[in-house]
Computed example of a mutant assay.
Amino acid sequence: MGLAAVILAGSMLSGCGKSASTEASASAGDGAVVSLEELQKGAKTEGEIVSVGMPDSWANWKDTWNDITAKYGLKHTDTDMSSAEEIAKFDSEKDKPTADLGDVGMAFGPVAVDKGVTQPYKTSHWDEIPDWAKDKDGHWVVGYQGTISILTNTKKVANPPKSFDDLLKGNYKISVGDVTKAAQAQSAVLAAAIAFGGDETNIEPGIDFFEKLAKAGRLAKTDLTLANLEKGEVEVAFLWDFNALGYRAQLGPDSYEVTIPTEGSVVSGYATIINKYAPHPNAAKLTREYILSDQGQINLAKGFARPIRDSVKLPEDVAAKLLPTEAYKTAKPIKDFKAWEATSKQIPELWQERVLVHMN
């Protein structure tokens, strides 16, 4: 974005049904194990946690930061920035580091490791995290998932599409965003590729799908902003499910429908990276621990982000914000990040040559 539960400051993991432990898994590259009591003491001494790319408004980070402050007395500050900017900041400030923890698109986790700016920490829920969603040594771990979905304005489209096949047969305009630049838009192309038998190494089926829509005059150039949605200028759009569900909540559940395409889609996630040079390393590790705790996962779900830990029981009102688990049965994760990095660099040119030439 999956348990040997570990008690963190008493009530932090209240509701976990598994036996408690006093130790977290390998918190250091040499395999050393640290007790959570030591981690909490170290964090208390440090007194603060400085994050990047984790603003209050994104994925309901606000509740987690409020919890971190209330439970551990840690002062928190954040500077919002892109995944690439976070990695560059860790690297450029190695001699005078200011940031402890970042939240990056999953594909940037390996990039950060290759850059040598991360330190490993495996949380007490490590065994519950799917292999595709974590670095084997603990340098990055996904906290919440995103899957490309179809958002439909039901006031404009009487029969909301459920599949890519439905989309091809429709008579409405479809918005996908700027495929030459935006990761969300490029992921929509990958989702289409997966639906028609491709993957990160074979994007052709996805390009072909959008080429057909463009030739039929059914691709819109409308920006996927809340303002344009409010004005009714978007009929059908491809968005990460957490963005689509968030828009639906703001604009009215009765006016929008969110669907995961039945043939398949791509599931990705956002991962925490701990700065190798973090000025507050214990606070950073404790924060990662909390993000993957039951309450941390529930906080993310309140922000429409699907938890990475399937075992977490969401309160009924929170679960109602999300799509049912069975909706994701055909969604597949990216397995070869290097292949996807290479493919995503090819997409802008393919889009220009095959799709944009047919759009007015």
Rank of each mutant, 00 (worst) to 15 (best):
F196R: 15
G197V: 06
G197N: 12
G198R: 12
D199I: 13
D199L: 09
D199V: 07
E200F: 03
T201A: 13
T201G: 13
T201V: 05
N202C: 11
N202Y: 14
N202V: 15
I203A: 04
I203C: 08
I203Y: 01
E204Y: 00
E204G: 10
E204I: 11
P205I: 13
P205N: 14
G206Y: 03
G206I: 00
I207C: 06
I207E: 04
I207Y: 03
I207M: 10
D208S: 13
F209C: 03
F209Q: 05
F209P: 02
F209E: 05
F210P: 02
F210R: 09
F210W: 15
F210Q: 05
E211K: 15
K212H: 06
L213C: 05
L213N: 07
L213H: 11
A214M: 06
A214I: 01
K215S: 12
K215V: 05
G217L: 02
R218T: 12
L219P: 00
L219A: 01
L219I: 14
L219Q: 06
A220L: 00
A220V: 03
A220I: 01
K221R: 13
K221Y: 00
K221W: 00
T222D: 02
T222W: 00
T222K: 07
T222C: 03
T222S: 11
D223A: 10
D223G: 07
L224Y: 08
L224D: 01
T225H: 13
T225C: 07
T225F: 15
T225S: 14
L226A: 01
L226P: 00
A227G: 02
A227Q: 14
A227P: 05
A227E: 14
L229P: 01
L229M: 10
L229F: 15
L229V: 04
L229A: 08
L229K: 08
E230L: 01
K231E: 11
K231H: 06
K231I: 05
G232Q: 07
E233Q: 13
E233V: 04
E233H: 04
V234D: 07
V234N: 03
E235A: 11
V236C: 02
V236S: 01
V236D: 00
V236F: 02
F238K: 01
F238I: 09
L239C: 06
L239F: 12
W240E: 00
W240M: 06
D241F: 02
D241R: 11
D241P: 06
F242R: 06
F242L: 07
F242Q: 02
N243T: 13
A244H: 03
A244K: 01
A244E: 13
A244V: 05
G246W: 11
Y247S: 08
R248G: 00
R248I: 11
R248F: 07
A249W: 15
A249M: 14
Q250A: 10
Q250L: 14
G252H: 09
G252Q: 07
G252W: 10
P253L: 15
P253Y: 10
P253H: 12
D254H: 09
D254E: 14
S255Y: 15
S255W: 14
S255H: 15
S255A: 13
Y256L: 10
Y256G: 05
Y256T: 11
Y256D: 04
E257Y: 08
V258G: 03
V258K: 01
T259E: 12
T259K: 15
T259C: 04
T259H: 10
I260R: 10
I260V: 15
P261L: 02
P261S: 14
T262G: 11
E263M: 11
E263K: 12
E263Y: 08
